[in-house]
Amino acid sequence: MGNAKVSGGGRRWRATAYDLIVLLGLLALFAANLCLGSVGTSPAEVLGILLSGPGDTSTAAQVIWQIRLPRVIEAALLGGALSLSGFLLQTFFNNPIADPFVLGVSSGAKLAVAVVMIVVLGAGQPMSPAASVGAAFLGSLLTMGFVLLISRRVRSQGMLIVAGVMVGYICSAATNFLVAFADDQAIVNLDNWSRGSFSGATWPDAGIIAAAVVAMAAAVFALSKPLGAYQLGEPYAQSVGVNVLGLRMLIVLVSSLLSACVAAFAGPVSFVGIAAPHLARRGVGSSRPLLVTPACFLTGAAFCCGCDLVARTLFSPVELSVSAVTAVFGAPIVIALMLRGRAGR
């Protein structure tokens, strides 16, 4: 019993140390995102601008307050959301490669945006940011609702994965069908959105994202105890009083809402939901949801902040797709961690 307590205490200390290290890295990346760009500013200048408040009318202050600060806040929040979504799905499917978009949520969002761009607005009509966000949310939630309906009738996680993949294929096929009849400008706009980007972030958007992500993150943390039981198998979870069917529906609902929020405000952003949970579990040395949840959020936030910094500064003034950068960094991380895990076993 004493050894178990020491072991548990050691895991908590390791998790705390990992969280502090990642938090420091996130703060460093946060500062780098504010300092680096086409308008270069030193850390001292950035600090002075932040302390002076948003009333400063200088060019550097406008760049910091209106462009870089809401963008890096959005990248951190949505990165954390993607990581938590990936952790939930990997726990649900007991599959290390489960991804927030495995249930077809991003494909549903893209289909809804395509319908609004091509069918509702038609040729030559610009699509406002609000319309894009609304369409993406609607498509994500409709897709999520359909998959939830399937989950009530399908008890096998493997079959639910297949159902989600098929829903994604159907949505992608419908989108391609619409694109075949679209004008060139609509095709360009849809392609730009589907690449994934944190550009164009605004303070109102950041406020909405913060409220949604904080609420969902709190829900994930509240589910830590039943999730820990679920990790030991459905029979064990049922034996300790967990409503397994209700928990499964909550996992799908919360993970889909998190990824829908990302799709609505940033478009599809790949690989964060796979790579960040792996890094977090490896860093804390445990799969306990109570320890992994904060580590997941911080890791995803830091990962997206770093990738967004690379995307907008590496070939400046040309900005890369953040989804491409996350895939470039995320894929080797996942491969290396999986190989190390297999070698350890």
Rank of each mutant, 00 (worst) to 15 (best):
Val6Gly: 07
Val214Asn: 02
Ala76Gln: 07
Arg152Phe: 11
Gly273Asp: 11
Ala327Tyr: 06
Phe271Glu: 08
Ile64Met: 01
Val188Gly: 02
Ala229Cys: 06
Val22Thr: 13
His278Val: 03
Leu78Asp: 02
Pro226Trp: 14
Ala174Ile: 02
Cys296Ala: 12
Ala266Trp: 09
Leu279Asn: 04
Phe198Leu: 14
Leu291Phe: 14
Leu190Arg: 09
Ala17Ser: 11
Ala182Gly: 07
Met127Glu: 05
Ile170Gln: 00
Pro70Asp: 04
Pro294Glu: 00
Pro226Ile: 09
Val214Gly: 04
Ser107Pro: 02
Arg11Trp: 03
Asn94Val: 13
Ile170Leu: 15
Pro235Ser: 08
Pro317Ile: 13
Gly344Tyr: 09
Val162Asn: 01
Ala173Phe: 15
Ile49Gly: 08
Leu138His: 05
Arg71Phe: 13
Ser259Cys: 15
Ala60Arg: 05
Ser83Trp: 04
Pro289Trp: 05
Ala206Ser: 12
Ala131Cys: 00
Met338Ser: 13
Arg12Cys: 09
Val252Lys: 00
Ile97Tyr: 15
Ser156Asn: 03
Val6Met: 11
Leu258Met: 13
Asp56Val: 02
Thr59Trp: 03
Phe181Tyr: 15
Leu309Phe: 15
Met144Glu: 08
Ile118Gly: 11
Val262Ile: 09
Ala44His: 09
Arg248Ala: 02
Val213Lys: 10
Leu227His: 04
Asn3Gln: 14
Gly285Ala: 01
Leu247Lys: 09
Ser38Cys: 00
Thr202Tyr: 08
Ser270Phe: 12
Gln66Leu: 09
Phe181Pro: 03
Lys110Met: 12
Phe315Gln: 02
Ile21Lys: 04
Ala114Met: 03
Pro204His: 05
Val133Glu: 03
Ala114Ile: 05
Val242Thr: 14
Thr57His: 05
Ile209Gly: 00
Ile208Cys: 01
Phe177Met: 10
Pro70Thr: 01
Phe92Glu: 00
Pro54Trp: 10
Gly200Ser: 13
Ala182Val: 10
Leu223Gln: 05
Gly10Met: 14
Val116Pro: 02
Val39Glu: 03
Tyr230Ala: 07
Lys110Ser: 11
Val115Met: 08
Thr143Lys: 03
Phe30Ile: 02
Arg340Glu: 15
Cys296Ser: 13
Val325Glu: 08
Pro70Tyr: 09
Gly233Phe: 15
Leu291Ser: 12
Ile49Tyr: 04
Glu45Arg: 14
Ala98Asn: 06
Val6Leu: 13
Ala163Gly: 05
Ser224Pro: 08
Phe221Met: 15
Phe329Gly: 03
Leu47Asn: 00
Gln231Glu: 06
Val328Arg: 10
Gly168Ile: 07
Leu178Ile: 11
Val46Thr: 13
Thr16Gly: 14
Gln231Tyr: 01
Ala114Pro: 04
Ala123Cys: 01
Val214Ala: 14
Pro268Gly: 06
Gly164Ile: 00
Leu223Glu: 01
Phe93Thr: 06
Ala17Met: 08
Lys225Cys: 00
Val214Leu: 15
Leu291Cys: 06
Ser172Asp: 09
Ser287Thr: 13
Met166Phe: 13
Pro96His: 13
Phe93His: 11
Ala173Asp: 10
Ile97Asp: 01
Leu309Ala: 08
Ser85Trp: 15
Gly37Pro: 00
Leu142Asp: 05
